[in-house]
Structure formats: C-alpha cells, structure tokens
C-alpha cells in the first residue's frame, strides 16, 4: 500500500509512526526561515552600520551565525523545529524517532551547501524524489528525517461521551477483528461529519451486522431522511457503544 508513513520501533516495543514530509511543506518552511533570516539581517543593516566599523564587524558575525548556525540552534533546542518548521508543524528527528543531536543537526545543515547545488536545492529535490522518505542528501548523511509533528487532538474523549448515551447497545453477532472494531468506532466518531444519507449508506455496507433489522425496503431513502430514520446507522452506533465498553 502506498503511504508516506514510516514506522520506527522504540526499545520498549512501541511502534512510532513517522509521517514523512516532502518538498512542498519543507519548501514553505524553508522560505519562512529565509524570510525571518532576511528580516533580521535587514534589521542589522539598518542599525549596526551606525556604530561604524565595529557595527560592521558585528554584522558580519551575525550573518555568519544566521547563515550557518541558526537552524542548528533551533533544531537542537526547540524539538527539531526552526521557526519556519514550527509554522508548518513539522520537525526534524533522527531516523529512530528520537530528538536530533548536535552532530546530526550540524551535519545536515552544513550539507545544505551540497543540496543547494546547482541552483535552489535542485540536487536536494532530486534526492528527495529518489529516496524513500523524502530525505535530502543532508538528511541521508546525518540519518535524520523530517516528519509532521504529532499534535494532540481534542481530549474530549476523556470527558464527554462522543456517542449518544441514549442509543442502545448491541452486541455484534459475529467476531470482529481489531481493525473492524476500530473502524466501527471511528465510524461512530466521524458519523456527524458525513451527510446522513451517506452515513446510512455506509452502515448498510456492513450487512452481517444488520441481521433482523426492520428493513422497510419499499421506502426510499428520501422518505427515511424526511422521517429521520436511520436504522442501520443507529444499529452501528449501538455496536460502537458496545465496543467502547458501555454495556
């Protein structure tokens, strides 16, 4: 199956899912970083030369650090995120899913020079197209990978019942695999984002779960929508309730 997810296993045996980032999002992040760097340099250019030659000296030092060590500093101290990456919600990790180290960060950022060749990361883009996890040369050498930072979704599940507590609880009549159970639950969770007709249609697909359902075959879907009757959907919600432990 085609996907961009890479799994890394922790020593504790937990699998981490790393979603690799291709050049689109990374390009935008890079652009934002360049804009920030450029802004700072323009600010310096505006202020520092007033201090005469000393100011120029500071300007040069500032340029050096901005150019070479700005990404390293942010990647090491801010969870692998430069400001641009933070805006795009992506981060640099080592290939095993741990935080990037000094050495790796320095390496991947020094090797930008090579990735940049011959013009505007052309080599970097080519390597990203060819490597499995969208890694540019610097990433390949430093053994790092750029992934989407996992953000915690709503924590509502801990507090509020997603499912209607009024809905009845049904025990499924056949044995369900893990994936099927999870799909039924995610059906219940996403159900209100689908249109009711589609939700009903989906529910009808799970035929074996709908035994002895009072089906009025003559009735068309529109009629049932008007009466807001969704027997199959309600049945699946009941099963989801059961699966989530509300028995």
């Amino acid at each position: 199956m085609l996907d961009t997810v890479k799994t890394a296993e922790t020593p504790e045996g937990v699998e981490l899912k790393l979603t690799c980032v291709s050049f689109y999002a990374r390009g935008v992040a890079w652009l934002l970083d360049i804009l920030i760097q450029g802004f700072i340099i323009i600010l310096f250019l505006f202020i520092l030369p007033r201090l005469g030659d000393f100011g120029l000296g500071l300007l040069y030092i500032g340029m050096f650090f901005l150019n070479w060590l700005y990404p390293v500093f942010f990647e090491v101290y801010f969870q692998g995120q430069t400001p641009g990456k933070k805006a795009m919600k992506i981060q640099v990790l080592l290939i095993d899913g741990t935080m990037v180290t000094w050495g790796a960060s320095l390496l991947r950022n020094l090797l930008r020079t090579v990735d940049f060749l011959p013009f505007f990361y052309a080599l970097g883009v080519m390597t990203m197209l060819m490597s499995r996890d969208f890694r540019r040369l610097g990433d390949l050498v430093a053994n790092t990978v750029v992934v989407y930072k996992r953000e915690l979704k709503d924590n509502l599940f801990l507090d509020e019942k997603i499912l209607d507590a009024q809905a009845q609880t049904y025990a499924p009549e056949i044995v369900l695999s893990a994936k099927e159970q999870q799909t039924i639950i995610s059906y219940a969770e996403r159900q209100n984002k689908l249109s009711p007709e589609r939700a009903e249609e989906l529910a009808l697909l799970a035929t074996p779960l709908l035994n002895d359902l009072p089906v009025k075959s003559k009735q068309s879907l529109d009629d049932r929508v008007n009466h807001s009757e969704f027997p199959a959907s309600d049945r699946l919600l009941g099963i989801a309730n059961y699966l989530m432990g509300r028995r």
Partner: peptide, 13 residues
Amino acid sequence: SDSDSKMFGFYIL
C-alpha cells in the same frame, strides 16, 4: 579597535 573588530567579523564570516 573598531576596524580590528570589523576585520574579526569578516574573517569569521
């Protein structure tokens, strides 16, 4: 010292 500092910055860069 000011032009020395300038050169210092330049050499680093």
